[in-house]
Design a protein around this nucleic acid. Sequence first.
RNA 1: GCCUCGGUGGUGAAAUCGGUAGACACACAGGACUUAAAAUCCUGCGCCCUUACACGGCGUGCCGGUUCGACUCCGGCCCGAGGCACCA
Length: 817
Amino acid sequence: MEELYQPQAIEREAQSDWEDARAFHVVEESNREKYYCLSMFPYPSGRLHMGHVRNYTIGDVISRFQRMQGRNVLQPMGWDAFGLPAENAAMQKGVHPADWTHDNIAYMRKQLKRLGFGYDWERELATCDADYYRWEQWFFLRLLKKGLAYKKTAPVNWCPNDQTVLANEQVVDGCCWRCDTPVVRKEISQWFLKITAYADELLAALDALPGWPEQVRVMQQNWIGRSLGVEFDFAVDGRAEPLRVYTTRPDTLMGVTYVAVAAEHPLAQTAAEADPKLKPFVELCRQTQSSEAALETMEKRGVDSGFKAIHPLTGETVPVWIANFVLMGYGTGAVMSVPAHDQRDYEFAKHYGLPIKQVIYPQEGSPVDLEDRAFVEKGVLLNSGEFDGLTSEQAFDAIANKLAVLGKGQRKVNYRLRDWGVSRQRYWGAPIPIVYCESCGAVPVADEDLPVLLPRDVDFAGPGSPLARLESFVQTTCPACARPARRETDTFDTFMESSWYYARFASAGNADAMLDQRANYWLPVDQYIGGIEHAILHLLYARFYHKLLRDEGLIACDEPFTKLLTQGMVLKDGSKMSKSKGNTVDPEELIEQYGADTVRLFIMFASPPEQSLEWSDSGVEGAFRFLKRLWKQVAAHANAAGPIPALNRTVLNAEQQAMRRQVHETLRKVTDDVGRRFTFNTAIAATMELLNALSRFEDTSDQGRAVRQEALEMVTLMLSPIVPHICHRLWRELKAAPPNATIMWPQVDESALVKATRELVVQVNGKLRARISVVADAGDDAIKAAALADPQVQRFIEGAAVKRVIVVPNKLVNIVV
RNA sequence: GCCUCGGUGGUGAAAUCGGUAGACACACAGGACUUAAAAUCCUGCGCCCUUACACGGCGUGCCGGUUCGACUCCGGCCCGAGGCACCA
């Protein structure tokens, strides 16, 4: 065996062995336990970044470990290939998005292979291929038939200069990123999927996901935001149409002093037409962005519309204000305002000198100061006429009932979650398979005419979507009446593609159906791994889509991902590594310098997967040094003269037994760290400790060499999921036989773990004062006596009465004086 | 602004269910080898007190609490990160 560790040659050889053996290609085997391990597929941005390397190394380690447990492991890979950056590249560099994307895929595929990930490449897919998105189009038409897809207007960011819809990311300080023109909000007609129809199930099923991090479940729960409240009407003076609002605090209804409506609300529009002085404000409201963060942090402003709303219970009139923080698209576009008991209403009322009427008082009668903030807690009603004296909870029912009796309102469950808008006014996406006909309206494309292919020859120079300008695409005939008609020119949100790719991997290559029975063999995904930044949107949409697929009879299970590992972000200079920030570290140079194993080892060692990882170039060197030491130790052992004798457990001396004990203690820990805890960093640390101990173990006797042989085999097997290339080679050197796919994870030898004595810590009043050694099976009384007898302990307890002695088995003794 | 997570030596981190704080590394310092450097190996490495040693004191963002015992649990704050529906 060579003395020098040469990663490039070793890795090339290992990868070609795996490829020749089709080592990671899997098929359904009904008699074997399956394990589907999936890492979130990448957007083909050009090159892999450290976030990818981290994500895919974690997935590969878990996959290889599970394979060594004997399971039939599916680990596929593909490309989330539609998206904005491809179109930007087209505009900036003149490259066609399809070419740009395919070039990037080719490059990144090569990089993934160079990292040695064990993917079943025969299942690879790219979402921009018509073979993939045709099924998305087909499925959308099923949803349309069921009424789960519908059209309505919704706001977009609009650049009046470029005549283009902008993504939130393309709005910088309220202006267009290209031309700096102030962005306005524009309401346009778009397609939606009724995720709110599944809100209750999506919420309830979170409890059935014990394999998901609590953090993610809580975030999704809050995002869905189920609330029980009351929806009711204010009559409006001089208008036939009432003003509908929703509140979760009907107990504060008697404290309403004004009503606020969105600038796009019909009432505001009417008011602005009647009173030209209101027009500038309504215009101003259009200049705020639609993002929630922008809405919540901007200055709250408003203007009196002149309309008067009639309080449904008192009959008093309150003014209707037009406010910039109310959006037409969310809820009813109008909110009741109770400044005394809502902080935002309070600040607005203070600013505009609107009345503040307190109707809730603390139950215990403590005074309330409304001078600098609202009183938002629940309490007892006062100044509320017939409801005086009721608690907030009682008043909720009393007021809800009263409104219902009057026919003015009813209890209603409301969700913060809004329906999923899937229309994008862009070229590089899956075309929405709809045709607009003057006589038939929006008509679905016939199944046999799918896919609606995304045309290649479009012109990127010009305003708006290139697809909408391509007459050869737009002009078609109506599938219903065969008269001339126009195609939908919007494409799908790319979350549509990423919401079902995990299922398609399990039905790879089927040209006749979206999914087949193979999906029911592999699904659900046993372990899903991806960035914490996807905790809400992607993961919620995928859960929703899964239920849609289930209800269409395409799959049998209820949830797509049994276990979820959310890896922390790879940070550089304290913030997320991303294309847009341009602070990425290129893994390729590191691989060239040290090899893939070193990069994999370092990234798994630097921090546990769920935590964020602040990148630093130092440390990679340390990982490389460790692999060199490992190589050297195996080489020294393998190259020593003479055959390695068999291990005979019955004749080992104390030192040999101690060495073996550490080997098996380490194996036990690493098995738990890798298999259950996913704390790969501590697994590596324990293996490093073992190798350090092994290098101090200089026994060259027959049994000494046998112990070392076992130890090195164990180290090789334990490290092989993390650094598979070097281990592939070391295994061959140690066993003088080629490795094959059936290599199993080793078993702990319990008999090697037996210990005669045990060290305990002795505390006095919780402070460490001594260590004692006791026989392994010592009872509490013997341990107490030994602790109290210790001279060092005596020093600290002399002259005081021992009040209590606490013995914690196998850990410590605490003496309280 | 709202939701979620995090904060431990010079640095990345460990302490798995409330029980020895700092494992394992990185960096640094000293030494060995070398004509020299690199590589490699060995030793030291939280802060303070002390000539020195100690199983002395202090110490896990800050303030307070619960407990025999708190990095860990509770309350209040400060700072950082992620998400907020058209980046993916």
